[in-house]
Design a protein around this nucleic acid. Structure first.
Lengths: 263, 263
DNA sequence: AAAATAGTGTCTATGAGACACTATAGT
DNA sequence: ACTATAGTGTCTCATAGACACTATTTT
């Protein structure tokens, strides 16, 4: 889009001294040889996160091929020449995790020279947030929903461990422990000023569920009273009028988010 | 580092079922052919920002070559195979802007398929924050310190215009208006919870200077009383004991940041 | 009735905004 | 004395945390 705009004849931004030179630019482009410069490989890796049972979780799968065969890696793959980074992330999410229509956001680009033993490979990472049930229903069976053990408080950052539900440690491939750590850091940072729960809860939920999500992400308890007041005053959620059923205590009011963001 | 760790024999993380297979992995790597997959070019572009005279500014330079000859671009260039992304950013900053020992941080990776007319080129962007004087002293003469005109409030995001000091619009190359917009958005976001002024002010400054920086970044005034109280209570700055001189009014106390972060 | 969790009302401490006031330099 | 900006003291309002209290379900 911007490339197009830049080449249009009378774009309103062409006020100062831009040399038009359209023919010579065209000639230049025709002659341009991409292979002049060495290029790295570029992969997109997606952190598919959810929060349930008091734990932050992310989807990993056991690598069947070298390098790092047997270790656990994030769903990812090399980008194609005809897709944008986000399109690549969505494709990989669909092909490797069976997920579509989820919230995704670019996280960070990892580019250490030796991060992949094969060759120079950059990883442009994305975070996807999904409901726990969606992950349970749609994920192929060779994937593992790893529980994350976060060794840092607040938004300090650092590598994060993955465990099975039974507590076994899952050795992570490449620098994926760092990518997971960055994802947790980002999620914690977003918590204060964006309605993160939108993506991590079903359409109807109890305030307690929303509080659980916040506490799981932060890794520490939040004040119940203050949390309720803030959420109700935020204007982002509304009561459905319905209440939960079949509980052995006073049933909680059910709420929904006012504007469910598209994808 | 991670590649090394992953291949070490008895890493403590190898608790679950990792297939060792060191020989076969070595064989695999020896056979691995990088050229199997098509690869994009990867550039690093650096937004060198400063705040002075009530305006946010960024360094751009007029392109002498195609594509987008005559338009203004961020300092940038293709990454080399033996340097990390941050190393590339620092190299470009040194070579193209004459700057070293400045704060830099990765911003975002732009990957639209058509963002560069030559070929598929990803841009991993970085933000550098420097004092206004440092920029004035060190910048080569083919660069322009463009004043940014930010058409959005808060952290909405969107493209940003560059102007000369005299108000002339500088047409920007590629998607660099978007990259600048992202940089402004990020800077505004950091303002609330990190001492951004550290990087944008000289060693000694008046509280008014710090307030000016905050107002310039936010694009709107801040409450003077509350701002003073917050800054003094933050524990991040301390009085030097000295006062400004040669002013025709009550001279202000000079302050310094407690811990000047390294680079 | 007992147990368990949902939800309300109220008090207090803290921090932001508003504003009046005092302080100190040059002219 | 006058001007301009620095810096202080105080009042009010909004919000977070603490805590006691009430409400509503199952067993």
């Amino acid at each position: 889009m911007y490339a197009t705009m830049a080449r249009s004849k009378k774009s309103p931004v062409e006020t100062a001294s831009v040399e038009p030179g359209r023919d010579s630019e065209a000639a230049f482009l025709a002659d341009y040889d991409v292979s002049k410069f060495e290029r790295p490989s570029v992969a997109v890796d997606v952190v598919v996160m959810t929060a349930s049972g008091g734990a932050l979780k992310a989807l990993v799968y056991k690598r069947a091929e070298h390098p790092h065969r047997g270790r656990y890696a994030l769903p990812g793959g090399f980008i194609r020449m005809d897709e944008s980074l986000e399109q690549a992330a969505r494709r990989l999410l669909r092909d490797k995790a069976g997920l579509s229509d989820v919230f995704i956001e670019q996280l960070y680009t990892f580019g250490d020279v030796r991060r992949d033993p094969r060759a120079r490979v950059l990883s442009v990472s994305y975070v996807a947030l999904v409901h726990a049930e969606k992950l349970a229903n749609h994920a192929p069976k060779d994937v593992v929903v790893a529980e994350l053990v976060v060794p840092f408080a607040g938004e300090t950052g650092g590598p994060v461990e993955g465990h099975t539900a039974s507590g076994e440690l899952l050795p992570l491939a490449f620098d994926h422990a760092l990518i997971l750590g960055m994802a947790v850091k980002r999620l914690r940072g977003k918590l204060d000023y964006t309605p993160v729960g939108f993506q991590l809860l079903p359409d109807e939920f109890r305030l307690r569920d929303l509080q659980d999500v916040h506490e799981t992400i932060r890794g520490e308890p939040v004040n119940k009273d203050s949390f309720r007041r803030r959420m109700l005053a935020s204007g982002l959620i509304e009561a459905t009028g319905a209440r939960e059923a079949d509980v052995s205590n006073r049933p909680a009011e059910l709420y929904r988010f006012i504007k469910r963001s598209a994808t």
